[in-house]
Every structure is written in structure tokens, then in C-alpha cells.
Amino acid sequence: MDSKLALYIVKRLTLAVVTIFLIITITFFVMHQVPGGPFLSEKAPSPAVTAALEAKYGLDKPKSEQYTTYLKGILKGDFGPSIKQRGRDVTTVIMKGFEVSMRLGGTAAVIALTLGLILGSLAAIFHNSIIDKIIMVVTTGLVAMPSFIVATLLLLFFCVWLGIFPANGNEPGGLILPIISLSLYPMSYTTRLTRSSMLDVLSQDYIRTARAKGVKPSKVLFKHALRNAVTPVVTYAGPMIAYIVTGSLVVEKIFAVPGLGKEFVSSIINRDYTMIMGTTIFLGTLIIIMMLVSDILYKVFDPRIELG
């Protein structure tokens, strides 16, 4: 089985390389098709300056040549300098932002998954009770509420009215609210997923059999039921973690957290070509990896699943 798993991983990794190559190629050519460019501003720089900038970043060369140069750079691990943020290179900007987003998103993901699994299980166990109803109402509300509203409300309530948390990520305790805002949606979603799949599992015959055989209720729940109920959560968690650790524009803006999220958006607005490529490749790779991890985890949770 181990060699089978290894073969599967190799296969998936090969596929991943092809996918990333396609992402690079498509992004590269589509990005250059979008009108506008990195050197436009309300005040146009002089033609001499624009020409010098284009030469500096190789933008005066034919697209095919730019493309091959870029690919060669990537193979050497060089993502180039940011065109808009003069003097900074793409890797540094991404890594600095990722460090912050990872800390924030990682914590939020752990909280979301833990609370989600607990609340979802509780709701399923006490199906139709008052606990179930409260959990469902709250999570439905949070799933429906866009993050900018949640974050703004938290800001208003805790920073302005109560004044118990700082309103920016720089100050001690400043990351608490951003983490809460980031985790609410995935937590609610995980709760709902866990609840429905738990309900499904709890009505299965083997659970009834286990109970009839006198297995301890806690063991029934955690060993037999949760393990099987967790599969949909794993499917969801992979991409969710990839997204959450690469930062959220809204939460970063509202709480002034210097994460990676805003680089995605500002790079596109600025037509910062190297930064667009860098962030896209980074996010793409991360998602592919996380999906691979969740696929492997299926196997761990449910050995019946055949990979490959």
C-alpha cells in the first residue's frame, strides 16, 4: 500500500507541475492583454522615463522573449523585482506578507476547525434541541454575513465603543479581532458541514450496532461516528486553509494588518506584472498542495478510499 501511495503522490506532483506551468502561461499572456500598464499614473512620467523603465524591466522586448526569460528566472527561484514597489523584490514582499497572513490565518484555521467540529458534533448529538437550534441560527447568520460587515461591526463594537481592543494589528492584542473575523465564516461552515454529515453517520446501522453492543457513548461518537463524518470537512479544509493563510484583503484593510491579501489586489490594480505572477503562482501552488494533502488525509480517515 505504501508504494501505491508513493506512486500516487508522484503522479499528483507531476500533474501539479503541469498545472502550475499552465497557470504561469495563461496568467502571463492574459495579464499582458489587459489594457493599462505599470507606469501609468494621473501624472504621466516623461517618455524618456517610461522608456528607461520599460528597458529596466525588460518590457520593451517581445512577449515571447519576456515569457522565456521569466520561466528561466523561476527555474532559478528568481521571481524578479516588483515593478511598482521600487527596490523590493517579489519573493521578499510575498514572504513578508505571508509570514503575517500565515500566523493570522493559521490560528484562525485551527480555531475554525476545532470549534466547527465541536459545535457541529454538539448540534448533531442534540439534534432538534435548543442547543442545536441556537448553533444553527448563529452559524447560518455568520455564513450569510459578508466578512467586511463582520469585521466592521467587531471594529465598531470592541475598538470604538468598548475600547478594549486596539483597532490596528500593530498594537499588543491587535491580532485578536482579525483572527476572530477571519475564523467566523469557516467555523460556521465547518459546523454546518459536520452537523449534517454527523447526522447522516449517526443514523447508520453500524452506529446502532455499536451502541447495541454496549460500546461507550463517547467512543461511539469519537471513534466510529466523527471519524467517518469528518471526510467532507477534510475536503473543505484543504482549499480553505490555502485561502485563509494567504490573507484576506478585507480583514487586512480594516485592521491594518500588513498581510499578503492586499498584494493580490493591488498588484492587479497597479499592473505590477512580476507581482501578479508571483502571487498567482504562490496561491496556485499552495492550493494544489493543500488539495493533495486533503486527498491523502481521506485515505487516513477512510482506508476504503482508493487513491489513484
Partner: peptide, 18 residues
């Protein structure tokens, strides 16, 4: 000099004295 590009957030930081 704190960097902040969200006007709601800057206002909140001003109102709470940061």
C-alpha cells in the same frame, strides 16, 4: 507613522486615541 489604507479603520484608530 502607521500605515493604513482603510478610512473606516483610520477613523476608528483616531477615535480610540491610537
Amino acid at each position: 507613522f502607521a500605515f493604513n489604507d482603510d478610512d473606516t479603520s483610520t477613523l476608528a484608530n483616531f477615535q480610540n486615541g491610537s
